[in-house]
């Protein structure tokens, strides 16, 4: 059985933001909410590196552990999802998440936060797959359609890989062997407790 993971190959990522835009387009994520973003280290100087970050769908997800209403669940393929009907927008998960993935759209009145929104690995939520209501609350369910996350599918350089952890690791390993240098599986240790 597959264990879904993300890996961003920093040697290939060019900070083009295709992943970010693909996600916005696919799920019509509103202005101000970013399920995915690209971060750059050493901007503008030698050693500059970018990686694309979203929810990593951690093994033993810290967000789930802190949720006061227990609205998180993990699918059989290891995708961490949550139920927006239960979510109270408290913001705990944001503080627990090592990647800053949870996002909260502003509600109109008194700066109250809306229900949490985050990357779903393009797997929708706990509603009928690809129904209109699932789309409105969680965005599209590509996994149910037999497709992979659009951000990775559209990555300009195939830096961002999404899919079964072993397959991803294989590809990445081949690349590293070919080009040499130090493998850097950004974020894997925090998310999956493993480095490759």
């Amino acid at each position: 059985m597959a264990r879904m993971k993300f890996l961003c190959d920093a040697e290939r990522c060019i900070e083009c933001n295709s992943c970010v835009t693909a996600c916005k387009n696919e799920h019509e994520v509103p202005w101000g909410v970013n399920r995915r973003r690209v971060v750059t280290l050493n901007d503008g100087v030698p050693g500059e590196k970018s990686i694309s970050v979203a929810c990593m769908h951690c093994t033993d997800a810290p967000c789930a552990a802190v949720c006061p209403v227990d609205c998180f669940y993990t699918t059989d393929d290891g995708i961490v999802l949550h139920d927006k009907d239960l979510c109270i927008g408290c913001g705990y998960c944001f503080y627990a998440c090592p990647f800053g993935a949870p996002q909260y759209p502003q509600q109109a009145a008194f700066g109250v936060r809306g229900k949490m929104d985050k990357c779903t690995f393009c797997a929708g939520g706990p509603l009928q797959d690809n129904s209109n209501v699932e789309y409105e609350k969680y965005g599209r369910n590509r996994i149910a359609e037999g497709k992979l996350p659009l951000c990775a599918e559209m990555c300009s350089t195939k830096a961002l890989l999404a899919g079964d952890g072993d397959m991803i690791a294989d590809i990445y390993r081949q690349r590293v062997l070919k080009r040499g240098g130090r493998p850097q599986t950004w974020g894997w240790e925090s998310a999956y407790g493993t480095t490759g």
């Binding site: 093994t59 033993d60 810290p62 789930a64 552990a65 949720c67 209403v69 227990d70 609205c71 998180f72 669940y73 699918t75 999802l81 949550h82 139920d83 009907d85 239960l86 797997a123 929708g124 939520g125 706990p126 509603l127 009928q128 797959d129 369910n141 996994i143 149910a144 072993d166 690791a169 294989d170 390993r173 999956y192 407790g193 493993t194 480095t195 490759g196």
Partner: peptide, 22 residues
């Protein structure tokens, strides 16, 4: 390239939301 045995452990709550048809 496999899961490390020393994972972080939490005491999880029990999911209380709706079932995911997926």
């Amino acid at each position: 390239c496999y899961e490390s045995p020393s994972v972080t452990s939490y005491e999880p709550g029990v999911y209380k939301g709706a079932k995911d048809p997926l």
